[in-house]
Design a protein around this nucleic acid. Sequence first.
DNA 1: CATGAATGAGGCTTCATTCAT
DNA 2: GATGAATGAAGCCTCATTCAT
Lengths: 224, 224, 224, 224
Amino acid sequence: MNNSIPKINLQVNQNLYLKNPESSELGKKIITGSIDLIDEIGFDSFTFRKLGVQIQSPEASIYRYFESKQKLLLYLNSWYWNWMEYRLIFSLANIESPTKRLEKAILLLTEEISEDSDFSHINEVKLNRIVISESQKAYLTKDVDQENKIGAFSVQKQLVETISKIILEINPSYKYPHMLVSTIIEGAHLQRFFAEHLPKLTDVSDSCDAITDFYNELIFKAIK
Amino acid sequence: MNNSIPKINLQVNQNLYLKNPESSELGKKIITGSIDLIDEIGFDSFTFRKLGVQIQSPEASIYRYFESKQKLLLYLNSWYWNWMEYRLIFSLANIESPTKRLEKAILLLTEEISEDSDFSHINEVKLNRIVISESQKAYLTKDVDQENKIGAFSVQKQLVETISKIILEINPSYKYPHMLVSTIIEGAHLQRFFAEHLPKLTDVSDSCDAITDFYNELIFKAIK
Amino acid sequence: MNNSIPKINLQVNQNLYLKNPESSELGKKIITGSIDLIDEIGFDSFTFRKLGVQIQSPEASIYRYFESKQKLLLYLNSWYWNWMEYRLIFSLANIESPTKRLEKAILLLTEEISEDSDFSHINEVKLNRIVISESQKAYLTKDVDQENKIGAFSVQKQLVETISKIILEINPSYKYPHMLVSTIIEGAHLQRFFAEHLPKLTDVSDSCDAITDFYNELIFKAIK
Amino acid sequence: MNNSIPKINLQVNQNLYLKNPESSELGKKIITGSIDLIDEIGFDSFTFRKLGVQIQSPEASIYRYFESKQKLLLYLNSWYWNWMEYRLIFSLANIESPTKRLEKAILLLTEEISEDSDFSHINEVKLNRIVISESQKAYLTKDVDQENKIGAFSVQKQLVETISKIILEINPSYKYPHMLVSTIIEGAHLQRFFAEHLPKLTDVSDSCDAITDFYNELIFKAIK
DNA sequence: CATGAATGAGGCTTCATTCAT
DNA sequence: GATGAATGAAGCCTCATTCAT
């Protein structure tokens, strides 16, 4: 934790938890532990019982914080996109040129994640892997409309909106800014997954910035 | 069923089933029933027991055909992409111009699905909804490498390869043909899901071909 | 509340509570809230946690007043029969004729309940429904002998005794006064339940006093 | 089992079980075991897990037969009243006089139960204790209307109807035959419970037939 | 080959209660 | 005296699978 910066707490939608996990030690252990465990065994075989064993607390205590493992996943997902938005705002501060702003945004969305020391109880690298592999399970579900109603996806929507506006600054007549942005966001994640597991579906070589390069080109040509 | 065309059976990777469901009435009932049921209740709450009730056959019988519900999902996924490839080949027959060919391919990948009477026991509209909502669960899993090894995804790979080659015909120096194609394939599905459930992430209006239009523009500009 | 009558507090057996709920605002909220909640969801799914949510107080606070939900039910049951006895005494005041007294008693035990403004924190109509539906659960239990020992049922016993004595005034040689009275008391409750839910087990028509009429006839013929 | 009488199976309403417990050894063990266990520990603390331990079969197997412990209780209750009706029919065979018939019926409903060797896997004495102590929990519940709809109480209704008709034979103008019969049925059970646990609510002495005597007198006077 | 029956393991959730403040 | 936090134990139920016929 850096002394010169005040402590930051990313505010996650209150409908996603019963008791704010940031508000206690146990809460933070739940977050830390669930990130470790989901990354290790996958969301499908993740259970509150196993998490309880991992963090040495009874299952019942976890239920005081989260209604279900789905809600916990939505929380992690929300935290992640909140964090992205927060980094985006920092990254764009004091930059005038819309083109530069868009470039910065694309970089942020497509680059590989590294740890952020501002949030000591969260391992952003693992969380990124979880968001890549599991977060679709959070909305590709029969409950998506219900979850949407309680605001589970409002952060993503806001992020898409923010970047869409930059695109419209560059080309006010471009017809599909939201589709373009959501295509990048989800696509970049998927390409990282393909690169690791299904390389025939991608063109990623050793040069790690192929994904960023691809999307940069794609977007700027699209909106020209 | 059209009399003038011989009955077609799409060959699905044999590692995905224990006994070919096309080979018996019960097998076909399993396929028909599972498509209906997964579309209705979602893959997560889908079980062989419920399927058994639906098709009036005991669970144990279903295990004769499929090792697990995951394998069944992989089978459906594989069948779907097989069917897409089969339709692509038909659609491209006798067309010379690579540009025309690419246009046709994009249309096929992005348009809305309608029923195909050639395969009477499969409801392609429902299957498409399943592939959109659930198929990512088939590979966003800890077992992906194992599944990949047995060829569970070879059809998709082949389809990506086929279309990538068309792109390279148009622009031999384009660096990211596979990424571009897999971005469309997954993106188009996702955009359809967003259009229905999370409209703020997309720009789909009443004009239903916005998705096709968007990807057409995106791709041709990208490879110019 | 009637000004001319001093405020009355029905004394309930002290073994049924840890701290007298009449002695504090929270205590009264517990009584009011539990009557509302048990009437709404039934005693089986009633828990202190749910009651806590309902009255906006933590579970732990309720445990200050009642050892368990069973004891709380015994308390409500006791309060109810106390209230009946209190009303009986009022109703019989200054009436000489034993026959008239018995008639009055039967009416009281079998008529429909309406609210009593003397006890503002208790809804007697709901409480009556609870006593009808749930109070048997208070003694049809493995712990009945234990509960009996601490006096949980002394009020009912006293009421039965009071009315039995009237019967013996009318016919000193009648052999079964207690059985007769307890048969009415429980029977009248049950008949009201049947009238609403299992009408084939009863003969209640629109004329609401069928139950009173039936028991009046039954008793006076029995003791003639 | 008596050789001269063919084996009898009392048919219980099919909506109360998933798989007929009479149809297999395990099913019969479930019935025998549940009667033993409920009699021993009470219905409230009875669980399928404990029953599983008792009969040395896994919980899951019990769920193949009964949806829930409530349904199992309804089954036992239904079986009991079926058995009563069956015994009533035998007991009334070839008896002409309505008065004699009513006397026989009252005896049957109020006397103490002894074992019936025709049904070897059911201990009628224990089952009677259960019906006395627990069966009210089967209908004094929020689900009573639902359960009534599936016919859970049709046997009791039929029994009440049968005996009501005898009463009307004796006195065709008696207004409350159903109330009278259901008052006896439930009352007799309750009096037996009181006699054992709350003697102040009854007048039962050593002469065990006080209950029968009381109800005999009560009924014949009532319908005179 | 198909099926009816059975089951071990574990999922999710709530309960009743205690403890520290 | 009231409360917020935590928890051990257990409830109910379903799953995926095997076995014997």
